[in-house]
Design a protein around this nucleic acid. Structure first.
Length: 118
DNA sequence: GTATTGACTTCAT
DNA sequence: AATGAAGCCAATA
């Protein structure tokens, strides 16, 4: 079981399957921190490298990469996404295609006894 | 204490 | 589609 906000956010992101993506706000909600989308972005950067956090799978609610188009980080994120089969165009992906829908088991792995209200 | 700053979101133009 | 304002909340100055 996790014990602090950082861990909850990290663990939630770690559940996102390869080839899927999730929004910052969505991660916040799943981590039990509704309304804290901005905190998710902050906390991702604090994750220890050993976690191998799949940070590239977290995008804005619109499907847009949070970094400015063509910036170093945006390019890196797009590359990582393409490596796992996600099509990135104009600094964004199609949410309707790739958005992560957690299964009950995945929610359970996050420590929920009942699904959170989305 | 107030002000500013974000890997954000939503709504209205 | 693109742009802007307002809302958001924790961290920082």
């Amino acid at each position: 079981m996790t014990h602090n906000k950082h861990d909850r956010i990290w663990n939630t992101i770690a559940q996102i399957p390869e080839g899927n993506i999730a929004g910052y706000g969505h991660i916040a909600t799943l981590a039990g921190l509704p309304g804290r989308a901005r905190m998710v972005g902050k906390v991702i950067g604090l994750a220890p490298k050993e976690l191998q956090l799949p940070w590239q799978r977290v995008l804005r609610s619109s499907g847009e990469i949070a970094f400015t188009a063509h910036s170093t980080m945006a390019n890196k994120q797009a590359q990582l996404l393409r490596q796992e089969g996600v099509m990135v165009e104009n600094n964004r992906v199609r949410m309707s295609i790739y958005q992560w829908q957690p299964t009950l088991e995945e929610l359970f792995a996050l420590g929920y006894e009942e699904p959170p209200v989305i």
